[in-house]
Write a protein that binds this DNA or RNA. Sequence first.
DNA 1: GTTCGCACCTGAGCGC
DNA 2: TGCGCTCAGGTGCGAA
Length: 292
Amino acid sequence: MPELPEVEVVRRGLANWVAGRTVADVQVLHPRAVRRQPAGPADFTARLTGTTLGAAQRRGKYLWVPLAGPGPEAGGFSLIGHLGMSGQLLVQDPSVPDETHLRVRLRFTDGGRELRFVDQRTFGGLAVEEAEDGDPEGTPVSIAHIARDPLDRRFDDEAFVRALRAKRTTVKRALLDQTLISGVGNIYADEALWRAKLHFERPTATLTHAQGALLLAHAREVMNAALAVGGTSFDSLYVNVNGESGYFSRDLDAYGREGEPCGRCATPIRRAAWMNRSSYFCPRCQRIPRPR
DNA sequence: GTTCGCACCTGAGCGC
DNA sequence: TGCGCTCAGGTGCGAA
């Protein structure tokens, strides 16, 4: 389940393996994988073929690669991607057999390793899109509304805490709101809340400034820790561009640990159904807020 | 304008 | 063995 640290690992892999290479040929094997391309798969293929890939960028869980040449029309466009729930961008030797859920393949003019987009559940996808006018980072138009992430040097901590406290919602919902803070998914939301000793249903309006700042610090800390070991992996659905898994799942304190003792107080971690998914929390350290 | 709930999607695991 | 159900969850969109 790729969240910010996992996507950053993939971004670094793309920067190392595909930057500066020219696309010789594009194969779309599943149209849903390019559903965000308004004019369809043929347009996606046409816009990408012959272009040279630039250095991969990231905002939250979105990745994009600026495109250059061959015609002037390629400038100002980027290949944008989201891994969704189960997406993988793999740099594979052409002799490696196709993966079962291979959706898009890019071959390069140098005849070397190809870039494959593999996605079991097809929640993710790729598209070629125009960048925002005058944006030096070449941010694609469709993700201009996505907030910066806590690992971004330009993330404004004070503005985040103010906006968090001004929300009329609950704290976990706010953490998953990508227009407020990007890159946080279900796993790291639960981990940050456990570290901050906050229940997931705590109303954001009742948080003190210090609690908001502490929550942000923990979110940043847990994502940095995950990034240091290559991300979180529970199964083969998350891997880096070379198909290798991360190790952070060994260090999770709450997520997926139902019934196991809390690392602080030994109370069994509880799982609660929440918005058609799960929230893991310590019922002692993370007290349920009293109804107001 | 903001918040909320649901559909989308596939495969693993489980009970019958 | 095979069928049906549940679960996993990020995003976008329509409803409230």
